[in-house]
Amino acid sequence: MEFSSRRLADVVVAAPAGQIDHPNAMKLQRALTPIVDEAAAGKNPLVLDFTGVEYISSMGLRVLMVAARQMKSGNAPVAIAGLQPEVAEIFEIARFRFVVDVFPTVRDALVALSAPAAAAYGASRT
C-alpha cells in the first residue's frame, strides 16, 4: 500500500493506494492517525481520496470508522471520494454508506466541503 497527502486551502486530502488488506490496514492507521489528529483538532475537513484503492478488508474499514468517528466528534467534516466499483461494492456489503459521506470524485467532495479548497483543486488541475 502507498500513501500520500496534500493540503488544498483548509482541506487535507489523504490518498492511500493499492490493497488495504489486514497488514496494510495497520500501515494505513499509522499514516492516517497524525493527519486525523491535526484535522480534528483544527476542525479542518478531511477528504480520503480512494481513487487508487483496489481492495479494502474489514480491518481497513475499521480504520476508516475510527477516523470518521474522531473527525465527527471534533465537528470536523470528513468524506471519501473516488471509490472504484469493487471497493464501492465492499462499502455497500459492509453497510458503510451510513458511516461516512461518499462522493463520486475528489472534486465533488471538495465542492461540498470547502469552496477555497475546490478552487485550489481546480487551479491545480489546469
Binding site: 474489514s58 474499514l61 475499521r62 470508522m65 465492499i90 459492509a94 458503510f96 451510513f98
Partner: peptide, 21 residues
C-alpha cells in the same frame, strides 16, 4: 461489519465479512 464495530461494538457478535476473511 459497520454495526459490529460501531453501534453494536461490545455486543459480542461478528459479521459476514470477517467470516469470509
Amino acid at each position: 461489519l459497520a454495526d459490529s464495530i460501531s453501534v453494536k461494538a461490545d455486543w459480542g457478535h461478528s459479521s459476514n465479512l470477517v467470516g469470509v476473511e
